[in-house]
């Protein structure tokens, strides 16, 4: 009996430290041909959700544990269509920017692919997620990866994660102390609560709008009385 704690301690020491993934998700930009003449015109700059995610990656790298890895998921179709519109190869540019930070984008084309990428079992190939952060368009009920890109002022059903889709994300894919943040507008008004209830992990989200126009990490829009909640 006396040997039991010693054996347990030895077995714990012999186990390698469990690796985890930090997942950063970048949504896509709107098309200027839809947004150009609107009063609240979105995405004058194509790379809001790229630069912010990469700035965050640099911050996170400072405290990264030895075996942990940052996974950067990028919604590809919107960058392809914005490339066609602006005649600039944005995929190439974002890959170059990612390379500077030591990240390679992992592209997804619809929400089902995203759900597959978020499915984890804790194995070496599919380590659990200890942090998830979203950079992109959203409202209180949806993450909208292709907002105002294929249809004017809206997003297509296969390309949004609606609160009704959250049951497709398993809480077991996350570590028990995983932290989640949505840097989209209005996520804290409903999405983050539903995430907490359905996925089982708290998600910090904004009450009010978020502003990416200064570059780097998004801020709460000034003058609207916004706040971060979970």
């Amino acid at each position: 009996m006396r040997l039991l704690p010693i054996l347990c301690g030895l077995s714990l020491l012999s186990l390698p430290l469990q690796a985890h993934d930090i997942v950063l998700i970048s949504g896509g930009p709107a098309l200027r041909s839809f947004e150009k003449y609107k009063k609240a015109s979105h995405d004058k700059y194509w790379g809001n959700f790229i630069d912010s995610a990469l700035a965050r990656a640099e911050e996170l790298k400072k405290d990264l544990k030895a075996d942990d890895k940052i996974i950067w998921l990028v919604f590809r179709p919107s960058y392809v269509s914005r490339t066609d519109e602006d005649q600039q190869d944005y995929l190439k540019i974002l890959e170059e920017r990612g390379f500077k930070v030591g990240l390679t984008p992992l592209y997804f084309d619809n929400k089902n692919q995203l759900f597959t990428l978020l499915r984890r079992d804790g194995s070496k190939e599919k380590p659990k997620i200890c942090r998830l952060e979203y950079f992109g368009h959203s409202n209180k009920k949806c993450w909208m990866f292709d907002y105002s890109n294929r249809v004017d002022g809206g997003a297509l059903e296969p390309l949004v994660v609606h609160v009704d889709d959250l049951a497709k994300i398993s809480g077991s894919s996350f570590t028990s102390d995983a932290e989640c943040v949505s840097y989209g507008c209005h996520s804290g008004e409903e999405f983050s609560q539903r995430w907490r209830m359905i996925v089982g992990r708290p998600m910090v989200g904004a009450v009010g709008k978020t502003d990416y126009s200064d570059g780097g990490m998004p801020k709460l829009s000034t003058g609207k009385g916004g706040s971060w909640v979970y």
């Binding site: 609160v163 804290g188 409903e190 209830m197 971060w228 909640v229």
Partner: peptide, 16 residues
């Protein structure tokens, strides 16, 4: 509305 009544509405958000 895009979805039914929010049955989690009674769980108010926590201010960070």
């Amino acid at each position: 509305a895009s979805s039914g009544v929010n049955r989690f509405a009674d769980r108010a958000p926590n201010l960070l």
